[in-house]
Design a protein around this nucleic acid. Structure first.
Lengths: 334, 334
DNA sequence: TTGAAAGCGCTAACAG
DNA sequence: CTGTTAGCGCTTTCAA
């Protein structure tokens, strides 16, 4: 392995000078810098981030902790995060948790061991206080999901409002004269009350009604659960907590020759790109996973780079990216 | 920060003993171990992986370098990789490349800086020799995609055969008496010759014909490209290089009221879970991204843990997981 | 503008 | 079985 020492010897300077050239920090005479750069080139030197991290007590890396990357909503989120962070040369340490709090705790603890600069976390528990012990004290954590029970000046939240989003989706359907909505919620999600509050508000305003059912976030289970709920309740509108579930519902309705949106309207959540290749195309509520990921990563950078003088990302703008917005397609409106 | 030194002091032993307890390596007297574990508990000690990595010239982390996590094929792959690696306590450093060789090179170089244990890479170039300079000398790299131009004892390949898979898909359609196939290839993929060879072989055996078209891996572009190709060529069968493209094709056919599979059969690739929620359900060729990810991660572990005595993963079995296999659903067979 | 040197937290060789 | 110690590659004072 080529080290600073080797470069220094070759360039005829001290390792301190080479270090200065590498970090572009202190002033170095042009002549020295030139010689150092040549030596680096000739020897093929690259820095050892582990040593640098040990010394600086922090590496340029961020943990991304999400329930399940197979869910396109989270895959889009990771893509948004990476598009922001890789530009700023941060590594991403990725983990799936299946929304299991034990796994989440372990991921956060691993993060401390690695002295990461920060973390982006999406988890769906009623309360987050079970995570309190595991949160790193020396770096910033941004939650992309809503949640209470945590208070510290290095814990931040930037999330879309589930209540507002649910409200917007329900208003959309009630305004289309739908009477009875079925909410197809995710069984792993434990914090549904906000969501239901949004629906309730829309129902009260319009005189509509609603009922709820729970399925896993996969199209098969959504299909199965929906089939039962449909025969029990005969809804004329459905809001699913993810686009994937909506796809399962569409599939079942198609098989059973129930017309969408003639007989029943469907709205998904997360506006994934999949929503554009269903038949009919799926109405879905923004923000998308991608938007959430981008906004969250920018938000985190604001904290991480606080001292570096880069105050480029306006929080107001980031929050506006996450306002609910119904993207109307064929599955709801004819 | 709590360090070994603090734990040692508290437990009344030397830091070496604490280190031994942590790594479970050398023998330590039960009494000492007990005291150390107590001290660790009391102080909330956790190891500094950066320091350990610096010392051992390697950290328990693996780079995962994929074209685009928004593509469910790769999202499934990452899930498969994580399911294997997180069990063995390896971190995953994730990168999107958009199949851009410059980005791929940069990711691989970053990997050297971090002294990672290995890398899993999927890239689609005619030749990989452009990457040769950037490949780390001290750790193992497994390519999940096919490719030539690289030879070294720390470079490995474990990939499904694109030729065999294409052959299986084409035989499936020709055997169903389809006459003229359209291959909808990915425009970013630069190594299509194997794929086409497989089709050619099936065509020769059965007397069928085929033509090709290229689209991006998103349903909109696939839809657009297919629409042109359809009016020019009037195929009665389509094989797409990804399920996403097949969804675009299905969507266009539905809009234009062309019956699937009555008038035309569709086969996708990668057997993603999406294939089960199209209308009709999509015939798709395994292996899935998940299978590839799992197999690849296990394969990599065989090299990384070579010296640790864990020879648990049989290469033959891994290779068999990747054999082509057509999962027949409604889109091809009536 | 530069160099010498301390030391980040850990492991492993060695001595006892 | 345990402790002492050197040193991994780097950054950062401090002094020149």
């Amino acid at each position: 392995m080529v080290t600073l020492k080797d470069v220094a010897k070759r360039a005829g300077v001290s390792i301190a000078t080479v270090s200065r050239v590498m970090s572009n920090s202190d002033a170095v005479a042009d002549k020295s810098r030139q010689r150092v750069l040549e030596a680096i080139e000739e020897l093929g030197y690259y820095s050892n981030e582990l040593a640098r991290g040990l010394r600086q007590e922090k590496i340029n890396a961020v943990a991304v902790i999400l329930p399940d990357i197979s869910n396109p909503f989270f895959a889009d989120m990771l893509r948004g995060i990476d598009d922001v962070l890789s530009t700023c040369n941060y590594f991403i340490l990725f983990n799936n948790t299946d929304n299991n709090i034990k796994v989440e705790k372990k991921c956060l603890e691993n993060m401390r061991s690695m002295a990461l600069s920060g973390a982006l976390v999406y988890c769906c528990h009623k309360s987050l206080d079970g995570l309190a012990d595991s949160l790193p004290a020396n770096s910033d954590t941004v939650f992309l999901s809503e949640g209470g029970g945590l208070n510290a000046d290095n814990i931040h939240f930037l999330s879309f409002s589930r209540k507002e989003t649910a409200y917007a989706a329900a208003r959309h359907l009630y305004d289309l004269k739908r009477q009875k909505l079925l909410l197809l919620l995710s069984s792993f999600q434990q914090n549904d009350s906000d969501f239901i509050d949004g629906i309730k508000k829309a129902a009260e305003e319009t005189g509509g009604s609603y009922c709820t059912a729970y399925s896993s976030v996969n199209e098969k289970d959504a299909s199965r659960v929906f089939s039962c709920a449909y025969s029990d309740e005969h809804p004329d509108g459905v809001i699913t907590e993810s686009d994937i579930q909506a796809m399962g519902v569409l599939s079942w309705l198609h098989t059973n020759e129930i017309n969408v949106p003639g007989d029943i309207s469907i709205v998904g959540l997360g506006n994934s790109s999949l929503a554009q290749c269903t038949q009919p195309r799926l109405t879905s509520a923004a923000p998308s996973g991608y938007q959430i990921g981008m906004a969250g990563a920018n938000y985190l950078l604001n904290f991480i780079q606080k001292d570096s003088g880069n105050f480029l990302r306006d929080t107001k703008t980031l929050e506006q990216m996450l306002l609910p917005n119904i993207i109307v397609r064929g599955s709801s409106k004819w």
